Amino acid sequence: MRFVAISTDLARHYQAGGADANGQVPERQLAEGGGNPCRHCLKMIADGAEMLVLAHRPFPAPQPYAELGPIFLCANPCEAGGGAALPQMLASPDYIVRGYGANDRIVYGTGGVTPTSGIPERAEALLGDPQVAYLHVRSARNNCFQCRIER
Rank of each mutant, 00 (worst) to 15 (best):
G48C: 09
F59Q: 00
A19D: 07
G35V: 14
I45N: 04
A21G: 00
G33Y: 08
M44D: 10
D20M: 06
C38S: 13
M44A: 12
L30C: 02
F59S: 00
A49I: 01
R39F: 09
A19N: 02
D20F: 10
G17H: 06
C41F: 02
E27T: 07
R57I: 07
L54S: 10
R39Y: 03
L42E: 07
A49N: 03
V25M: 08
G18I: 04
F59D: 01
A21T: 01
N22R: 15
G33R: 10
G18F: 07
A49L: 03
G33C: 10
L42S: 05
L30Y: 05
D20P: 11
K43Y: 02
A49V: 03
C38A: 03
P60D: 00
P60F: 00
L54A: 12
R28F: 02
L30F: 05
G34R: 08
H56P: 11
E32A: 12
H56C: 07
M44S: 05
L52C: 09
P58I: 08
Q29T: 08
A49E: 15
L30Q: 13
A49D: 15
C38I: 06
G33E: 12
A46V: 14
A19K: 11
A55E: 14
C38P: 08
L54C: 07
G23R: 06
Q24C: 09
E27K: 13
N36C: 15
I45R: 02
Q29A: 11
D47R: 04
L42T: 00
